[in-house]
Design a protein around this nucleic acid. Structure first.
Length: 884
RNA sequence: GGGCGGUUAGCUCAGCUGGGAGAGCAUUCGGUUUACACCCGAAAGGUCGCAGGUUCGAGCCCUGCACCGCCCACCA
C-alpha cells in the first residue's frame, strides 16, 4: 500500500542509481533507430548548480527522455569546461588562503598547473553530482573535459590547420588588457558599466604662439602622458589655421601635430580631441591614419613605464590621474572640470577596469569563418527557437571583429607555436614537428622556445559538438551523432559559444553542429532582478530540491519556460507543482485501493461504458497535446496539458465518476473500469515521466509488477481513433450541468449533499416520489446513472452527482428565474448595437448575417448548445419552483 | 545611437494561426463523502499600459506615445 505522500529524499538517489546502473542513459545498440543527440553546454569546472543550470538541464533532460521513450537512439553528451580564467582565479585564491607565501609566480608554471589539476580532481565537477540530483540522464560514461587528451588533440589540430590556412595569425594591435589578471581578454569579456566621472578640459599651448592654447577634453587625464597628436575636424573653422601646427604636451614636452580628421566631432567637447594611439581604440585608428607616433605609457599592471618623464614613472594609473590633474591645475592649464557620466569598460571576471594596451596577440580571422555560419542560418540549416534570436546572431556575425584568442594565463591549452631566437615562428602540433620545421627553415638544428600563452577557453568550447564525439578521429559516434540535434542554451552565450560552434563546426565538419538552437530565458528572482551574489538574491536550486523534490522544481521550470521571456521564479509555484506530484501519487493510490490493474486483454478502442470511452479519448488528446508541446519546444504548453489532464480531467472527473462502478455490484462494469483506470494511470505516468522522472518511476514500479523501468518504456501513441465524439459530448454535457448545479447550490447556501443523509443513503420512497414529480431531473439522473454505470436511480451509486442535484430541491424557489428570463427577452428584443452595449459577449450575434458561413455555423452551434443547456436547467428549476 | 523584449486578476505568469479573458498563489464562503487537507466544492477580483487604425470581430494585426528591462555600439 502506498503511503499518503511521496518522499523524494528516499526515492531520488535510489532511482537515479538504478537508472544509471541499468545503462539506460547510454545510447543503445539498436542501429535501426534514429539517432538523437544533445551536447550539454559544459558547465565550468568551478561551477556549482545555479538556477540557470537547473533550467537548462531540465529542458534538455525532458527532450532526451522524451526522445528515448519515442524509441530513438539517444546520446546526451556530457562534459565540463576547464574555464581558464575562472579556474586559475580559484586556485590562486586557494593558494592565498592556504596561508602559503607561495604565489602562482613563485611556484612556477608547472607546479601551478599540477596544483590546478589536483584541484580539478578533488573538487571540480561537484556540479555533476548536482545534475544527478536534478535527474539529468546524461551518459556519464562518455564524460569529457575540455583539457582531456582527446580534446587537446582536437584543439591542436584546429589551431594548426587554421594557422596554415591563414585564418589564425599573430598581430600587434590594441587589446583589452586586464591589469589585474594581466592578460588580454576578448571584446566579449568586457562589460561596460556607467560610471560617474569627470570631464577635464586641458589647455595645450601652441608651439611658437605665445599664450595661445588648444583645449582638449578627456575622461582619462593620465593618458595625456601618451598623447602624440591633437585632432580637429577638417571643416571646423575655429581650428582651421592650427592644422599643421604643433601643440606642446604639458608635463612631457612632446610636440603634438595638430591634424585634421573626421573623427573629431565639432559638437563634442571642445571640438579638439587629444590622440593617444596606444591607449584608445579610436585614437589608434586616427593615429594609424595620420601617421602619429604610438607611445605606450603603461606596463602590464597599468603602472606608468619608462616612456614617461622620469618623475612620473612607476605610478599606478588612477594615482597618475590625480597627479596629472593636480599638475595641470598647478600649471594653470586646467580649463574646466565637468561632472560626466560615462561608460567604463570592466573585465567581466576580474572586475577591474580594462586598459586598451598595445601587445602581440594571436587572432582568429572571425570574419572569414563567419560567412558560412551566416549562410547556414539564412538558409535554415540551423534554426533558432524562438526565431527572433537569429537577428541578434546575424547582427553580431555581420560586424564581427578579429577574435583575440591568446591569454596570458597558465591554465588552458598552451598555444602550439614555437619561436626561434630571431623570432621566427613555427606552428605545429608537437615540439618535434616544430623543431623539424625550424631545421628545414634554418638548415640546421636550432633551439625553440614555446609560446607561453594559452588559448581562450571558448576556443576549445567552440569545438565541443565534434570534439566530444571523437574528432579528429573518425569514430562511429562522430559519424552517427554529428550533426547533433538541438542545442539548448541561454541567450547570454550566443556570441561566446553558439556562433563560434557554428563557425568551427562548418569549417571542420562541413556541416552545422545542430539543426536547432533552443534559446531559453534567464531565471530571475521573484522581483525580476538578475540573480547575483552581490545582490544576495540567489535562489539555490539545491535548497528548493531539498524542500520540494527534484520533480517539483523540474516541473516548475518547464511550466514557466515560455518562449522569449525571462522567468521570475516564485516559490509558491514550486509548491503548487509539488502538490501536483502528490495528487498524482494519490490517484495511483486510489487505483491501488480499488484493485485497478493492467489487463492483458484490455483494448481501449473496445469499451462499453461512456465514462471509460470518454477518458481514453481524453487521454489520447492529452498525449497529442504534450507531444506537440515538446516537439515545438513549447515546454510550458506540454507541462500545462499534462497537468490539466491529470488533475482536472482524470482526478476531478474520471475518478469521481468511476466510483459507482468500482464499488457497485456490476462485475462487468467494475472490471472494465478497473482496467481502464489502470491503463489511463500508466499513460499518465508515461506522459509525465520526462517532466517528473522520479515520482513517475517510483509509481510505475509500485503500481504493478513490471518488466521494465519506466525510463525505457515507450511514449504513448496519440491514437485519435480513441476519441469517441458521442461519449465526449455526453460527458461535456454532464460536466457542465453538474458544475452549473454546484454553482447554484453554493450561491444559495444549500448545505452540501452529505448533510442530507436521507438523500444520499436513502433512495427511499419519499425521495423517489419527489423525483418523479420532476421529469427533467429524472432525465438528468437517468443519464448520469447510465454514464456512471449503475442501475437506475439512487443508491450510493450516483452519490456525488445526485447529492448535488437533490440538494437543490428544497430551495429551488429562491432562484429568481423570472428575472433571468426578462433579461434575456430584453436583450433579444433590442437592436444589435444596443445589445453590444449591454453585453459584449452577445456581440457575435450582430453580424451573423455577414460573417463567413463556417463562422456562422460555429457560432450558431455553440449558442444553441448553450441555450439548450440553459433551457434544460431552467426548465427543471421552474418545475421545482412550481412544485415547492 | 542601433536592436530585442515586456506592460493581462492583489502577486508570479500563461494565452501558439484574430472568434468563449485563463492558471498557480493569496483572499472570501462552504466542506469529518473510505485517493489526496500538499485535499474537495464555490465565489469575488481584469476599461488585457495609453491613443488611434484595420476587421463583422482585436489581449493578439498596423501606427504613434508612455513606462520598465535586456543586448550591442559608443562621443573625447
Amino acid at each position: 500500500m502506498l503511503e499518503k505522500t511521496f518522499d523524494p529524499k528516499e526515492v531520488e538517489p535510489r532511482l537515479y542509481e538504478a537508472w544509471e546502473a541499468s545503462g539506460a542513459f547510454k545510447p543503445g545498440d539498436h542501429p535501426d533507430a534514429d539517432p538523437f543527440c544533445i551536447v550539454i553546454p559544459p558547465p565550468n569546472v568551478t561551477g556549482s548548480l545555479h538556477m540557470g543550470h537547473a533550467l537548462n538541464n531540465t529542458l534538455q533532460d525532458i527532450l532526451v527522455r522524451y526522445e528515448r521513450m519515442r524509441g530513438k537512439d539517444v546520446l546526451w553528451q556530457t562534459g565540463m569546461d576547464h574555464a581558464g580564467i575562472a579556474t586559475q582565479m580559484v586556485v590562486e585564491r586557494q593558494l592565498e588562503e592556504d596561508g602559503g607565501n607561495m604565489s602562482r609566480r613563485d611556484m612556477g608554471r608547472e607546479a601551478f598547473i599540477e596544483r590546478a589539476w589536483q584541484w580539478k580532481e578533488e573538487s571540480g565537477g561537484t556540479i555533476f553530482n548536482q545534475l544527478r540530483r536534478l535527474g539529468a540522464s546524461c551518459d556519464w560514461s562518455r564524460e569529457r573535459f575540455t583539457m582531456d587528451e582527446g580534446l587537446s588533440k582536437a584543439v591542436l589540430k584546429v589551431f594548426v590547420s587554421l594557422y596554415r590556412e591563414g585564418l589564425i595569425y599573430k598581430d600587434k594591435r590594441l587589446v583589452n588588457w586586464d591589469p589585474k589578471l594581466q592578460t588580454a581578454i576578448s571584446d566579449l569579456e568586457v562589460v561596460s558599466r556607467e560610471t560617474a566621472g569627470h570631464l577635464w578640459h586641458f589647455k595645450y599651448p601652441i608651439e611658437g604662439e605665445e599664450s595661445r592654447f588648444i583645449t582638449v577634453a578627456t575622461t582619462r587625464p593620465e593618458t595625456m602622458l601618451g598623447d602624440t597628436g591633437v585632432a580637429v575636424h577638417p571643416d571646423d573653422d575655429r581650428y582651421k589655421d592650427l592644422v599643421g601646427k604643433h601643440a606642446v604636451l604639458p608635463i612631457v614636452g612632446r610636440k603634438l601635430p595638430i591634424v585634421a580628421d573626421d573623427y573629431a566631432d565639432p559638437e563634442q567637447g571642445t571640438g579638439a580631441v587629444k590622440i593617444t594611439p596606444a591607449h584608445d581604440f579610436n585614437d589608434f585608428e586616427v593615429g594609424r591614419r595620420q601617421g602619429l607616433e604610438m607611445v605606450n605609457i603603461f606596463d602590464a599592471q597599468a603602472h606608468t613605464n619608462e616612456n614617461v618623464p622620469e618623475a612620473w614613472r612607476g605610478i599606478e594609473r588612477f594615482e597618475a590621474r590625480k597627479k596629472v590633474v593636480a599638475e595641470m591645475e598647478r600649471l594653470g592649464l586646467l580649463a574646466a572640470v565637468e561632472d560626466h557620466a560615462h561608460q567604463v569598460p570592466y573585465g567581466d571576471r576580474s572586475g577591474d577596469v580594462v586598459e586598451p594596451w598595445l601587445t602581440d596577440q594571436w587572432y582568429v580571422d572571425a570574419k572569414t569563418l563567419a560567412q558560412p555560419a551566416l549562410e547556414a542560418v539564412r538558409r535554415g540549416e540551423t534554426v533558432f527557437v524562438p526565431r527572433n534570436w537569429e537577428k541578434t546572431y546575424f547582427e553580431w556575425l555581420e560586424n564581427i571583429q578579429p577574435w583575440c584568442v591568446s591569454r596570458q594565463l597558465w591554465w588552458g591549452h598552451q598555444i602550439p607555436a614555437w619561436y626561434a631566437e630571431d623570432g621566427e615562428v613555427f606552428v605545429a602540433e608537437t615540439a618535434e614537428e616544430a623543431l623539424a620545421q625550424a631545421e628545414k627553415h634554418f638548415g640546421r638544428k636550432v633551439n625553440l622556445q614555446r609560446d607561453e600563452d594559452v588559448l581562450d577557453t571558448w576556443f576549445s568550447s567552440a569545438l565541443w559538438p565534434f570534439s566530444t564525439l571523437g574528432w579528429p578521429d573518425e569514430t562511429p559516434e562522430l559519424k552517427r551523432f554529428y550533426k547533433t540535434d538541438v542545442l539548448v542554451t541561454g541567450f547570454d552565450i550566443i556570441f561566446f559559444w553558439v556562433a563560434r560552434m557554428m563557425m568551427m563546426g562548418l569549417h571542420f565538419m562541413n556541416e552545422v553542429p545542430f539543426h536547432t538552437v533552443y534559446i531559453h530565458a534567464l531565471v530571475r528572482d521573484e522581483k525580476g532582478q538578475k540573480m547575483s551574489k552581490s545582490k544576495g538574491n540567489i535562489v539555490n536550486p539545491l535548497e528548493l530540491m531539498d524542500e520540494f523534490g527534484a520533480d517539483a522544481l523540474r516541473f516548475t521550470l518547464a511550466a514557466m519556460a515560455a518562449q522569449g521571456r525571462d522567468i521570475k521564479l516564485a516559490k509558491s509555484r514550486i509548491e503548487g507543482y509539488r502538490n501536483f506530484g502528490t495528487k498524482l501519487w494519490n490517484a495511483t493510490r486510489f487505483c491501488e485501493m480499488n484493485e485497478c490493474a493492467i489487463d492483458a486483454n484490455f483494448d481501449p478502442s473496445k469499451l462499453e461504458g461512456t465514462v471509460n470511452k470518454w477518458i481514453v479519448g481524453e487521454t489520447a488528446r492529452a498525449v497529442a497535446a504534450v507531444s506537440a508541446g515538446v516537439e515545438g519546444y513549447r515546454f510550458n504548453e506540454a507541462a500545462g496539458a499534462a497537468y490539466r489532464f491529470v488533475w482536472n480531467i482524470f482526478c476531478d472527473w474520471f475518478l469521481e465518476f468511476s466510483k459507482p462502478a468500482l464499488t457497485g455490484g456490476d462485475d462487468k462494469a467494475k472490471q472494465e473500469t478497473r482496467a481502464t483506470a489502470a491503463w489511463v494511470r500508466d499513460q499518465a505516468l508515461r506522459l509525465l515521466h520526462p517532466f517528473m522522472p522520479f515520482i513517475t518511476e517510483e509509481l510505475w514500479a509500485r503500481s504493478e509488477r513490471r518488466e521494465n523501468m519506466l525510463i525505457v518504456e515507450s511514449w504513448p501513441a496519440p491514437d485519435v481513433a480513441l476519441f469517441d465524439k458521442a461519449a465526449h459530448e455526453e460527458m461535456e454535457w454532464v460536466i457542465e450541468l453538474i458544475s452549473e448545479i454546484r454553482s447554484v447550490r453554493s450561491e444559495m447556501n444549500v448545505p452540501a449533499a452529505s448533510k442530507v443523509p436521507l438523500l444520499i443513503k436513502g433512495a427511499d420512497d419519499a425521495v423517489r416520489r419527489r423525483l418523479e414529480m420532476h421529469e427533467s431531473l429524472i432525465e438528468v439522473l437517468a443519464r448520469v446513472s447510465s454514464i456512471t454505470e449503475t442501475a437506475a436511480i439512487p443508491e450510493k451509486a450516483v452519490q456525488i452527482v445526485l447529492g448535488d442535484v437533490l440538494a437543490i430541491l428544497p430551495l429551488a424557489d429562491v432562484i429568481d428565474l423570472d428575472q433571468e428570463c426578462v433579461r434575456l427577452e430584453k436583450e433579444l428584443g433590442k437592436t444589435q448595437g444596443e445589445i453590444k452595449k449591454i453585453d459584449g459577449k452577445l456581440s457575435n450575434a450582430q453580424f451573423l448575417s455577414k460573417a463567413p458561413e463556417h463562422v456562422i455555423e460555429e457560432q450558431r452551434a455553440r449558442r444553441s448548445e448553450a441555450e439548450a443547456l440553459a433551457a434544460k436547467l431552467e426548465d427543471a428549476l421552474n418545475r421545482l419552483k412550481g412544485a415547492a
